[in-house]
Simulated assay, not measured.
Amino acid sequence: GVSCGHAKPGWRLDHCRRGRGVADLASLKGSGPNGRIVKRDVEAASAVPVAPAPVIAATVSGPGFDEIPHSGMRKTIARRLVKSKATVPHFYLDVEIRMERLLALREQVNQSAPRKISINDFIVKAVAVALRQVPAMNVTWTDTALRQYHEADVCVAVSTDTGLITPVVRNAGGKALSQISADVAKLAGRARDGRLRPEEYQGGSFTISNLGMFGVEQFSAIINPPHAAILAVGATQQKPVVEDGELKAGAVMRCTLSVDHRAVDGALAAQWLAVFKGLMENPLGMLI
């Protein structure tokens, strides 16, 4: 053994580890008398180097533009969406839903509800009940098997300053509208504050993307892997409709279902969409 210059005789190099590793003696240069290796030499050589602070890319301005560096979340979103669109065989189904009964029920419910129920809360509930009634739609794709779920855990797309994230409303089919409303509000708030825990945005089998509040009439969304489907929801609008052979004004909402054809065939997706439409147009059925 080699002494490291401590006052106590018999101390050796392994006493100078300090929990941070031992220096290689051959590389040490002693600063004591006659080049002797002393305590401070070992401590200096054994110290853990401090990593340099990460370089944060700054906004670069040029003639007529500002170049804003991608955030980590934006890079992840881009990578996942490119993979989804390139590798998942999408097909799309459109449906128009009459909303008069749901709007009337919502107005009645909100007269006594502990918190105001939104149209989106009804959509989450209807999606979950439809997944229960058509369980073959409540699946995700893996390379070896379809994974069919016992509960309807529905993801709701939330826009944040750094990108889109999809927190999960667990067991939405078994919850009252007031609880769904509270869950969505809490999760959306935590998402916008960047405080979601992994278990709050991982999992689920189905996603809802609602742009109706922005006045968007209809759009198609990209599937959120490994989910088998995503429902794109547009705004409820007053439109002319034919009812009992007569033309009248009606409240109509358009939805587009994007489906992974590997996991779900067209007939099954159409069956699920018909059930969802029926629940939205006769909303008491989803509350019983």
Results as ranks from 00 to 15, higher is better:
Thr166Asp: 03
Ala7Met: 00
Ala263Arg: 01
Leu257Tyr: 05
Gln179Gly: 03
Gly174Glu: 10
Val22Phe: 12
Lys186His: 13
Val50Ala: 06
Gln148Ala: 07
Ala263His: 05
Arg106Ile: 04
Val139His: 01
Phe219Thr: 01
Asn210Val: 08
Ala126Asn: 06
Leu81Ile: 00
Arg20Asn: 04
Ala185Asp: 11
Arg147Tyr: 07
Lys29His: 10
Leu93Ile: 14
Ser178Gly: 03
Leu196Cys: 13
Gly189Leu: 07
Thr162His: 14
Glu243Trp: 03
Phe65Asp: 02
Asn110Asp: 06
Gly64His: 05
Lys8Ser: 06
Asp66Leu: 07
Asn110Leu: 00
Gly19Met: 00
Ser112Val: 08
Met137Leu: 06
Leu177Thr: 03
Arg17Ala: 10
Asn171Asp: 14
Val252Tyr: 07
Gly203Asn: 12
Ser178Arg: 10
Thr59Asn: 08
Asn282Thr: 15
Ala269Lys: 10
Gly245Cys: 15
Asn110Ala: 03
Arg190Asp: 15
Val168Met: 02
Ala152Leu: 05
Arg79Ala: 11
Glu107Tyr: 00
Ile288Lys: 07
Leu187Gly: 12
Ala176Phe: 07
Thr236Ile: 15
Leu187Ser: 11
Arg170Ser: 11
Gly194Pro: 13
Phe91Tyr: 09
Ile119Pro: 01
Arg195Tyr: 08
Asn171Ile: 04
Gly189Cys: 09
Ala136Gly: 04
Pro63Asn: 11
Ile223Ser: 02
Phe65Ala: 08
Phe214Cys: 00
Gly30His: 10
Ala128Trp: 08
Arg80Pro: 00
Val50Gly: 00
Leu211Lys: 03
Asp193Glu: 15
Ala86Met: 02
Ser46Gly: 10
Ala26Gly: 12
Ser159Thr: 13
Ser181Tyr: 12
Ser220Ile: 05
Gly245Tyr: 14
Ala263Phe: 08
Ala182Ile: 03
Asp66Asn: 10
Arg197Asp: 13
Asp244Cys: 07
Leu279Tyr: 14
Val2Gly: 06
Glu246Gln: 15
Arg197Tyr: 11
Ser112Asp: 04
Pro52Lys: 13
Thr256Met: 05
Leu81Glu: 02
His90Phe: 04
Ala235Met: 09
Met137Ile: 05
Leu164Gly: 11
Ser61Thr: 11
Gly245Arg: 12
Val233Pro: 13
Phe91Lys: 00
Asp14Ser: 13
Met286Lys: 07
Gln237Asn: 15
Cys155Asp: 09
Asn138Tyr: 00
His150Arg: 13
Val275Gln: 14
Ala274Pro: 07
Lys248Gly: 04
Ala172Val: 13
Val95Lys: 04
Ile123Ser: 02
Arg195Ala: 15
Val95Cys: 04
Ile180Trp: 14
Ala228Gln: 04
Pro63Cys: 02
Pro135Ser: 04
Leu102Tyr: 03
Ala7Ser: 02
Arg115Leu: 14
Gln271Tyr: 06
Ala269Asp: 09
Ala157Glu: 04
His15Gly: 01
Arg262Gln: 08
Ile37Glu: 09
Ala78Leu: 02
Asn171Glu: 12
Gly203Arg: 04
Leu81Ser: 09
Pro198Met: 10
Pro240Tyr: 14
Gly72Ser: 10
Ser31Gly: 14
Asp265Glu: 11
Gly215Leu: 00
Ile56Asp: 09
Val48Pro: 11
Arg190Ser: 15
